[in-house]
């Protein structure tokens, strides 16, 4: 209601029609891609009404999975959906042993499945309808107001009561103090302890008038890898938590959705809506092997421009840390720094 209100007024019909067509195309695409998914372990009959679901595509993340699962179980995720894109490190087998996970396998192209979004969208359509669905990567950790005392169910209940259908987040790149190749993440280790630093105040925001979302850039990646070409710097705006309906579709990764009312996760009248952060523990030594692999596979965004830039930067083994980096303590710190907001949730 609230999110839709002022958007609707500005929509013109042609635009509406085009967006509707686009959403239909995206949904058909996901429908076509359904054949690429082979179920490895199906526990979907365990899912109960009102459960919160997590959706994740991954490749070779075996070391990170134990912590990932613990973290999200701690927040109160009831069921995990994984799409394993051809891991050869035993990720899929490990996941299929988890009592609350459903695992699908695919060896098809990550890129032509829109970086996994098509696969997840198909699963969300089948299983996510009417549930709160969290879509994250294996190196992304959701932080929301009061997350250390209130389970995610408290948040979603409150969003439901407020007639809010989606939660906006800033993707917050985390990095170690040392050169990034010198810190490795062993099995079960907390990557947020290995890479606890972040940039607190260098984000640049523009509004995307077509989809209605905010386009946020900045952080250490813009600062170090894209200082000469800021326009190419990766987007840091995410909408990972959505009360899913089978009519919804992610447009580009989890940066924005259709229908675009879901992108209205920010206030335009000067107030603040409730929002979170996705802590992005990507900058550890696994990144370098990942980057070369991704470039070989040509599977990432914009012809791997992002990865090429990293790779070039990474070969210098950079230190992202500066004396002005902040060390992560907890959500209240992020709130005070203005990276997320409690809104009127008290």
């Amino acid at each position: 209601m609230d999110a839709n209100g002022d958007w609707d007024a500005t929509l013109n019909y042609l635009e509406k029609y085009r967006l509707r067509r686009q959403r239909l195309r995206l949904r058909l695409r996901a429908f076509r891609k359904r054949r690429e998914l082979k179920p490895l372990m199906d526990r979907t009959q365990q899912i109960a009404t009102g459960d919160t679901l997590l959706f994740c595509t991954l490749r070779n993340e075996r070391n990170r999975l134990p912590f990932f699962l613990d973290y999200y179980r701690g927040l109160g995720i009831d069921h995990f959906f994984f799409v394993d894109n051809g891991s050869d490190d035993g990720s899929a087998e490990y996941l299929s042993r988890q009592a609350d996970a459903t695992v699908f396998l695919t060896h098809h192209s990550y890129k032509s499945a829109r970086y996994g979004v098509d696969w997840l969208q198909w699963l969300q359509r089948l299983y996510g309808h009417g549930h709160w669905c969290l879509t994250v990567d294996a190196d992304e950790f959701l932080v929301y107001p009061y997350c250390e005392t209130r389970p995610i169910r408290a948040l979603t209940d409150w969003l439901d009561a407020s007639s809010v259908r989606s939660l906006g987040c800033l993707l917050l790149d985390m990095y170690p103090k040392e050169p990034i190749n010198s810190v490795s993440c062993g099995e079960g280790e907390n990557p947020l302890e290995l890479a606890p630093w972040f940039d607190s105040g260098n984000y640049m925001i523009e509004k995307n008038h077509y989809y209605g979302n905010l386009w946020i850039q900045g952080g250490p990646r813009a600062r170090v890898f894209f200082a000469n070409d800021p326009k190419r710097a990766p987007a840091m705006n995410k909408i990972p938590l959505v009360k899913w309906s089978r009519h919804y579709a992610y447009v580009s990764s989890t940066h924005m959705l259709l229908p675009r009312g879901l992108n209205g996760v920010y206030d335009t009248q000067g107030g603040e809506k409730t929002s979170g952060c996705l802590l992005h523990a990507k900058f550890l030594d696994t990144l370098k092997s990942k980057s070369s692999e991704e470039i070989e596979r040509q599977q990432h965004f914009s012809n791997s421009i992002e990865y090429r830039a990293y790779y070039k930067g990474l070969s210098d083994n950079p230190v992202l840390w500066t004396q002005w980096s902040e060390k992560y303590i907890g959500w209240r710190q992020l709130e005070i720094l203005g990276l997320m907001s409690k809104g009127n949730w008290a």
Partner: peptide, 23 residues
Amino acid sequence: ATERRIRGRTGLYMSARYPNNDR
């Protein structure tokens, strides 16, 4: 909490607050 939701923090631009230019 209500104040935060309605007025927000002046001069802060973030994923949950992006006031229109003329606001």
